[in-house]
Design a protein around this nucleic acid. Structure first.
Lengths: 208, 208
DNA sequence: CAGCTTAGCTGCACTCAGTGCCATACTGCA
DNA sequence: TGCAGTATGGCACTGAGTGCAGCTAAGCTG
């Protein structure tokens, strides 16, 4: 699709990109070994060989490090809405957009699998990370609602679009909350996606 | 229904209750005058005439102070589910339960209005407070899902119930997000509730 | 290539949330 | 009245996050 991110233009950009990845890699490693609370920001910075102060010029907070690709998800959803066909109803478009958001995991090479699995675990267990995830979900939701409304101006108003998107995202979130408890879904994002998909079909049937 | 909270049994309980209210009152006052970030926990404790350390034996965190009645909301929802009639579908029960949750504001005398208005503003503007609100909403959602599933064992499974409740709560949350931006709804919870109600009816029509 | 400019790195000092510990004071109860 | 349990709050500490200022090195220009 678009040019991969790893070809930063200037030396500075490339170095910055490398440091960013190093921080994420170091954090994932430390979180897996010592746990989230057992790892300080200073530890992460030291492991990535940068000053503690520098960490905060890459990530606004410790939690933010777990969600490095949040913008990509928004873009995926917007693209799905833009690619709609004339026959699509709002719910159809929305369902496809959400599927694309869930499938978005690009931009971080090998790290992806480990990061995703770790993220799921930390969302379950660390309040600060769960809080951050929720806020991001809300932001994505808001963004999608805006685009959806513009795509269907005759059928949706501000509040209606927000409520509709909220219902769909809420269904996903609610189902996820239960599914993430299920030991079978741990460390198996594919199986998780499968079960989520069937649950969604079930709940959202009245709309389609 | 149940005896009001203000008649604490022992002297200790009454004193504890008074201190709790004093902390909330002091915090509301300071937040309104100096803002959330401009007020430290030490300030609040000093204004309520207790030690800083003691604050944390009443509230686990600074944000938690803004949600002193969270348990009451859960109880309201559970009561609404318990009071269902044989002819009710899950969606009917759920809609009534959510309405009751929204209407729950009891237990804090005069403070209620100011606290509610302040909370709405802080949820909009302070990330930490918004995060806490989201987590509480998720917890309530989870609780409701459990009760709803037990109330309709033939029609709902774990994941289905969670997804259904998630969809409804999500619709509320989504609509709220937009409505809270509207200046007309600031400081007017009743008008807010009205608009929320009509929006919900609209979005959830396919279910009823 | 030499020199100037500017962006990014980082140490330092600081604030504030939150915790563990312990001595003290007060309440409830016998 | 005396004992036991509990709330209190001071003290010291950790860790997240910020502002500042000096330095280094990348980028650009002639």
């Amino acid at each position: 699709m678009s040019p991969p991110t790893h070809a930063g233009r200037t030396l500075r950009d490339r170095k910055r990109d490398r440091t960013r990845r190093a921080l994420i890699a170091a954090a994932v490693d430390l979180f897996e070994r010592r746990g989230y609370d057992g790892t300080t920001v200073a530890d992460i910075a030291a492991a990535a060989d940068v000053g503690t102060r520098t960490f905060f010029s890459y990530f606004g907070s410790k939690e933010e490090l777990m969600f490095p690709d949040s913008q990509a998800r928004v873009r995926a959803a917007v693209a799905a809405i833009a690619a709609r066909r004339p026959s699509d109803r709002p719910a159809d478009v929305l369902l496809r957009a959400l599927r694309d958001v869930g499938a978005t995991d690009g931009g971080l090479d090998d790290m992806v699998g480990r990061l995703t699995a770790l993220r799921l675990r930390l969302i379950r267990t660390v309040p600060a990370v769960r809080g951050r995830a929720l806020q991001l979900a809300l932001a994505v939701q808001r963004e999608i609602a805006g685009h959806l409304r513009r795509a269907f101006p005759a059928e949706l108003d501000d509040v209606g679009a927000a409520a509709l998107v909220g219902a769909f995202v809420g269904a996903v979130t609610g189902a996820l909350q239960v599914l993430l408890e299920d030991p079978d879904t741990h460390n198996d994002p594919e199986y998780l996606r499968q079960r989520l998909h069937t649950a969604m079909d079930d709940v959202l049937r009245p709309w389609r």
